[in-house]
Amino acid sequence: MTQAILHRIASGDRTAVQDCLSKYGGLVWSIARKLLRNSDEAEDAVQEVFVDIWKNAGRFDESQASETTFIAMIARRRIIDRIRYSTRRISADSLDDVLLEPFTRADKAMQMSVEANEAAEAMRKLRPEQQQVLRLSIIQGMSHQEIADATGMPIGTVKTHARRGLMQVRENLGLGKADRLKEVSI
């Protein structure tokens, strides 16, 4: 069986850096561009994300998530932190723009990763309002306020949908256990 790239990095195998860039460079770059919408800022963020990846490679646990999801998680964390600390919100599209996206190659859409397919399946089990809030927040990068403004929902409702929706997705993906936090504390 091929050893996970992240395990190779954690064990100090320098050749794994190039493999990691070849396999996940596009993923990190896409997440950065999607959430930051500014090329210069996205480039700086990508560099920081990869340093985080080298640092956290040893924490990767394939029994919990795939490498793709783990790397996407590190990328999102770093980029969201960047956005919050720069006190500049993501310049999200208006709802209309989101709904009127230009056409996309079907083969790329079809090649959506296994992880994305599973997440899409997990999302389908949510209530429509929860799906909408999670799409706008996580996929489009909108803040509570922006979602409230765009949808007309009270801000508290937006938070509730986000909370319940993500809890449900977490459960549906088999990531969450009700007493997980308690378990860690023992």
């Binding site: 996407a72 998680m73 990328a75 959506m112 997440a119 996580i138 997705v169 990531l175 969450g176």
Partner: peptide, 10 residues
């Protein structure tokens, strides 16, 4: 991880 997986959609 759950949020990251959702972020992979589309």
């Amino acid at each position: 991880l759950a949020a990251a997986a959702v972020g992979l959609i589309d």
